[in-house]
């Protein structure tokens, strides 16, 4: 704990990252009640209004919807999906990676082979095609598909950190007193691999935001009327010369969230990896 504070004091960027992240979490929870508009309400008199006009703090889009409200409401879904995704993909990654690495041999080869095949399609293409084919994404289906697309990556990290511990003699010691596989995996090995896995999970959080935003941008993310940051960018892309704010503010929201998580993740890795 003392060490965390010591490191925090020495990294102003981490403080900045954590502050921005907390800001977005705060907005996602309390934000919608703070704005006078709803995210679907169309102000027909003020389409493509500049920031500040008629109480539209960040302006409106081509249909006259309030951008700030839409961004705030949009933060809820993207944070939810990204959080679910990073937890789920880390969890499945541990299960898959641990069982492959621990048992080794044929199981390991089979799992690696499967992951190789999964990785043969770029994750974004995979998610995009599956979501496009299924149509009509919900928060659950989106989280599930993105998690699956991330499993090869998280499973490899888990497997790798398991392998560094597996050859340790404390594992041998547990074996020769007849411990079960589950005990060895989760009581002996897991606590010692948790550092890299948490680091990977926080980095995965940033990648999830990136992926979800990109899917929204490609039109296969959450369906209207739920506001989606990525979709807001592509919707307003045609009016970029007339109402640049309608494109830039959602883009800025994505950028700030992603960067804040990256900074946070970097700090987590500094603390956790250094400690060992």
């Amino acid at each position: 704990m003392k060490y965390i504070l010591y490191q925090l004091k020495r990294s102003p960027l981490a403080i900045l990252g954590i502050a921005i992240l907390l800001f977005w979490i705060f907005l996602a929870i309390f934000g919608p009640s703070l704005t006078p508009f709803t995210h679907t309400e169309m102000d027909s008199l003020h389409q493509m209004a500049a920031p500040g006009v008629n109480n539209h703090v960040l302006g409106t889009d081509s249909l006259g919807r309030d951008l700030l409200t839409r961004i705030i409401v949009g933060s809820r879904s993207i944070l939810t999906v990204a959080l679910l995704t990073s937890i789920a993909s880390t969890f499945f990654g541990i299960i898959v990676g641990f069982s492959a690495g621990y048992f080794g041999g044929a199981i390991d080869r089979a799992v690696l082979r499967m992951l190789d095949i999964m990785m043969a399609i770029p994750p974004l293409v995979l998610a995009m095609v599956v979501l496009g084919v299924l149509g009509g994404s919900s928060i659950m289906s989106l989280s599930l598909i993105v998690s699956i697309a991330f499993i090869p990556a998280t499973a490899r990290v888990s497997r790798g950190s398991l392998l560094t511990c597996k050859s340790s003699e404390y594992v041998d010691a547990a074996r020769i007193r007849g411990e079960s596989h589950l005990y060895i995996m989760f009581v002996e090995i897991l606590p010692n691999t948790i550092g890299p896995i948490i680091v990977e999970a926080t980095a995965r959080f940033a990648y999830s935001i990136m992926m979800v935003a990109s899917l929204g941008f490609l039109g296969v993310g959450l369906q209207p009327p739920t506001p989606d940051w990525g979709m807001m960018v592509i919707e307003n892309r045609p009016i970029i010369t007339d109402a640049p704010w309608a494109v830039f503010y959602p883009a800025l929201a994505i950028a700030s969230l992603v960067i804040s998580i990256s900074l946070f993740s970097d700090f987590v890795s500094k603390v956790l990896i250094h400690e060992q």
Binding site: F217, I240, I254, A255, V258, I259, L263
Partner: peptide
């Protein structure tokens, strides 16, 4: 660090 997970369309619109 800042660009590591920045979606291409975000850097693109800027």
């Amino acid at each position: 660090l800042a660009t590591m997970a920045l979606p291409e369309f975000v850097s693109g619109v800027f």
